[in-house]
Amino acid sequence: MTPIISVKDVRRSYGRGQNRFEALKGVSFDIFEGESVAIVGKSGSGKSTLMHVLALLDAPTSGTVELEGVDTRELRGRRLNKTRNKTFGFVFQQFFLTANASVLENVLLPMKIAGVGRIERRRRALAALEQLELADKAKNKAVNLSGGQKQRTVIARALVNDPRIIFADEPTGNLDSHTGAVVEDILFSLNRETGITLIVVTHDEELAARCDRRILIRDGLLVDESAAVAA
């Protein structure tokens, strides 16, 4: 069975000479389709750098990231952008919504980039908002939403291109505990019910424990890889 993502001796450094900093120091692991995987570690451990490399938002200095057996170094320009836009959905702590655009306009954005027709864009966006119980907020400006509604909007936006993988970077970091639990339930329901691979970057051990597997990064190294054990 081919992993959906295979990471082989990935290193990522920044700067040169005495100012050179190694954020990743030779990381290797596989992720299989339908898994939920937590990448955990303290601030500065390299976990966010690793997520950016996995999501093809950054390229490794050396080593390889394979996507279903294809070396992603072969992906360039338009092909890279198309692969990233179609294969991945993103849920970030900071939301990254356009504040004065409507909820519907925010959710439509990835489909505009993908070249989906106007009627189909609207149909898919409204379906995603219905799924996230936000259909009644479609015309509201994003700036007027609560934190939980913003994060559900972000999840709807992540879903509209029918991604194979969702990357969630501290998805509950800006939410209170109750709202955070609701958002977690949505993400894990999507993972279980639709088979979307879920990769969560977090320092929250309780969130990590809900995943099938936990990858611990410390000082740019993978120091532990194990099945998560829910409390």
Rank of each mutant, 00 (worst) to 15 (best):
D204N: 13
V116D: 03
F32P: 07
D71L: 09
R214C: 14
V103Q: 13
L159S: 04
V27H: 02
L54C: 11
A138G: 08
D71T: 10
R214E: 14
T172L: 08
I31Q: 13
L57C: 08
V27G: 03
G180F: 07
S177R: 12
A138Y: 01
V223P: 10
G15P: 03
G117L: 11
D30K: 11
S48P: 12
D162K: 12
R16H: 08
N19S: 14
I166W: 01
V65P: 10
E22D: 15
L159K: 04
I217V: 05
V103A: 15
F21N: 01
Q151I: 02
P3Q: 11
T2C: 00
R11N: 12
K42W: 07
Q94N: 10
N191R: 01
A156L: 09
H52P: 04
L132N: 02
K82G: 03
L145C: 05
F90V: 12
D169I: 07
R118W: 13
L75A: 09
V160S: 10
A181D: 06
R11G: 11
E22R: 14
V200G: 04
S45K: 15
P3F: 05
T98D: 03
T64M: 07
N106T: 03
I166M: 13
L57H: 04
G195I: 05
G147A: 03
V223T: 12
L222P: 14
R84D: 09
E105G: 06
V10I: 13
R157A: 08
G195S: 13
S13P: 00
L134K: 03
S177N: 12
L132D: 02
G26N: 01
T98W: 08
D169F: 08
D176V: 01
K112S: 11
D176T: 02
G34T: 04
A168S: 10
L159P: 02
Q131C: 00
G46H: 09
I215K: 00
E205L: 11
F188T: 02
T83S: 09
D30E: 12
I155G: 14
A23N: 05
Q94M: 09
F21T: 08
D162V: 07
E130Y: 03
G63H: 09
Y14K: 08
A208M: 10
P163A: 10
V70G: 03
I196E: 00
G89D: 14
A209R: 09
G46C: 11
V70R: 11
N100Q: 10
E22A: 15
Q149V: 01
G180K: 13
R214N: 14
I4M: 12
L56F: 14
L104E: 15
S226G: 09
K150W: 00
V160T: 06
N106H: 07
S189F: 01
N161F: 15
I5F: 14
D58L: 04
P110M: 05
D71A: 07
A55G: 15
F29N: 01
K150I: 00
R123P: 02
T98E: 04
A99Y: 04
F95K: 15
F88E: 02
N140Q: 11
G63F: 13
E205N: 12
L198M: 06
N81M: 05
L50D: 03
D30N: 10
A101G: 04
A181L: 00
L109V: 14
N100K: 06
V53T: 08
V37S: 05
G173S: 04
R118I: 13
D176I: 01
N140A: 14
Q151G: 08
E205R: 05
N191H: 11
A135W: 00
K112R: 15
F90K: 04
